[in-house]
Write a protein that binds this DNA or RNA. Structure first.
Lengths: 337, 337
DNA sequence: GCGCCACTTTGAAGCGCTTCAAGATGTCAG
DNA sequence: CTGACATCTTGAAGCGCTTCAAAGTGGCGC
């Protein structure tokens, strides 16, 4: 009797059970109805293989049960790792995660965020957010925005997990200065996102305090691009004796370039990474870098999402701290010839 | 006059222009109406800042303009890279890509595919597909399914990009055998997906022809897990003299374990990777591995998606060939003591 | 037995857009 | 000037679900 080929709808269940569509809708979600009714509806739904249509539901209710994970650039290994972990952890029976990539374009980031809002995403996780844009305020009032990496400006209801770049950069530069370095290059993600500015300002300020001469060089995440930038830095005179790469993927480029140029790590050049990619420990010498508590971060974000969706309450702000992992890519600079 | 705060809908444009909603709908999409009408509607839409609601559109039309990229396991670096590239390339004014991760679970893969269908995805790119499940046929008739990595069974309208694992595995084993190895371990993605079986069968068959003793060991993609598997393999007796890792990420585990155990690459152990991750060339010794034409693959997939969506025609099947990149992690086995 | 209350059930009105079939308008041949 | 035809335009019916307000049900105290 039931096999019409068409996928079953609420109406079919209503017909099956002799109830109204409204009653079925409520019962299926456990919102109303006697236990007996709910059971009867459940049973019919299962028998017919009913699956709610998310699109119709989204249109009617304004919510969708899906979470957007909006990455600034999936070329960044750290973002890849974080996004993958979030995708996995956010998956739940009643909820799923869409990962999308704004490919390094700040305008596109906003546009995609709006797109997520249009799709009735319950929450949007942005890594890292471009705090320059004021439009976030508008988006934040339509969906729960969880900003990772930097502060969300002008949005009243904030939910933010910040990276303590102050601590990271400061520790890094101190470490290099402590080893005796006086001139270091800082490889920094390109400035398409304003987000990086603060890290650079921090770097400048700290370097000044340490009497360190630093040079900030924008650098892409892909190996070929990073290698090229590193090559340029390493062939400039005077050549810096230390490099801080604000992403391990950029540090990889330094390995490649210094191998090419016959520069020996760490004796002739010290190098510090920033986000402890798994393979960093396999390099020769193993890369000294920073560990950020990824699992903790992911758990925190999941909790925020859950709380934002269920209770509409926004957690305020937490900060994630880095730990320096010494592995052998930093040494004293070569004594002046 | 126009600023009601509410975001503008078709109805608002209809009111603005004095046309019916239907006329506006057609005109906006350039389907009907005189050029003059279309221009008038365009103008009003822009003035009001109208943006079509994708959810309502999807409900009414059954199409959504979005493409799902369904990854079996985003832990695999190769999948990460491919998904990121696809996400970037599939993005277009009228189209966007959602990346989702089934976290290594074949049931979940199907379930998420169904979910994408429910969301009216125009096409679904699956990497790699689990060809064991017959349910794909059902899904393929609701959306264009583009299978990457293995053949989609039982689906009439096929669109597939296959990896020539036969060539890859064969070349790899021949290379090891040619170097004098007699006993090799093959690290293979765990079998949660049936997809890997063919590669294993191929390996067995080829090994037999080469008089090679091989042992197939399931292995996870994350560094810690891969290291543990590698450790087990390398402490078993007799210890294989060569390892073929069917993913570079697994090869990384071999580097870690052999460093731990004091086994020198390549003199005491030869190692072959499978998917040329950028950082593989930075290891000591650099990993010999296979290059698969990623850019070509991505372009091919984008073309398939476009053609499937626009013309509803499905391209048949292409195969992607690997190239062995020799870099120094393979040598003759140590002479028997 | 009546009225009140708490709860379940229902009809109907959307959500914002597409699309079908019918109506309106205009063009051109005869 | 009429009829046939091609186009443009429109009203209305959905797409499948939620939700509001009204209607129905039963239990309980008095």
């Amino acid at each position: 009797m039931s096999g019409t080929g068409r996928r079953p709808t609420l109406k079919d269940i209503a017909a099956e059970t002799g109830l109204s569509m409204a009653a079925v809708s409520y019962a299926l979600r456990g919102l109303q109805g006697t236990p007996e009714t709910q059971a009867r509806v459940q049973e019919a739904a299962e028998r017919l293989g009913y699956q709610a249509d998310p699109v119709a539901r989204a249109l009617a209710s304004g919510r969708s049960g899906s979470i957007g994970v909006l990455c600034a650039s999936l070329e960044d290994l750290w973002q890849q790792r974080l996004a993958a972990a979030l995708g996995r952890e956010l998956l739940a029976p009643d909820r799923n995660a869409w990962i999308i990539d704004s490919a390094g374009d700040a305008d596109r980031q906003l546009q995609l965020a709006q797109h997520l809002v249009d799709h009735r995403a319950d929450a949007i996780v942005v890594i890292p957010i471009d705090p320059g844009a004021k439009e976030w305020a508008k988006i934040a009032q339509q969906a729960a925005v969880i900003a990772i990496g930097d502060a969300l400006p002008a949005a009243k209801a904030k939910s933010e997990v910040l990276f303590d770049n102050e601590a990271g950069v400061s520790t890094a530069l101190r470490r290099l200065a402590g080893a005796g370095h006086r001139s270091v290059a800082v490889l920094s993600p390109s400035r398409r996102f304003e987000v990086e500015r603060p890290a650079e300002e921090i770097a400048q300020r700290i370097a000044f305090g340490l009497k360190l001469k630093i040079r900030i060089v924008p650098c892409p995440h892909d190996l070929a691009g990073a290698t090229e930038v590193a090559r340029t830095v390493l062939t400039s005179t005077p050549r810096p004796t230390g490099i801080l790469a604000l992403a391990d993927s950029m540090a990889f480029g330094v390995y490649a370039a210094s191998a090419e140029l016959g520069i020996k790590l760490p004796d002739e050049l010290s190098l510090l990474g920033y986000d402890d990619q798994p393979m960093s420990q396999l390099l020769c010498p193993p890369l000294s870098t920073f560990h950020w508590p990824l699992d903790e971060l992911v758990a925190d974000v999941v909790a925020r999402v859950t709380s934002a969706v269920d209770t509409n309450r926004r957690v305020r702000r937490t900060t994630v701290e880095p730990t320096l992992i010494e592995r052998g890519s930093v040494a004293a600079p070569p004594s002046r010839a």
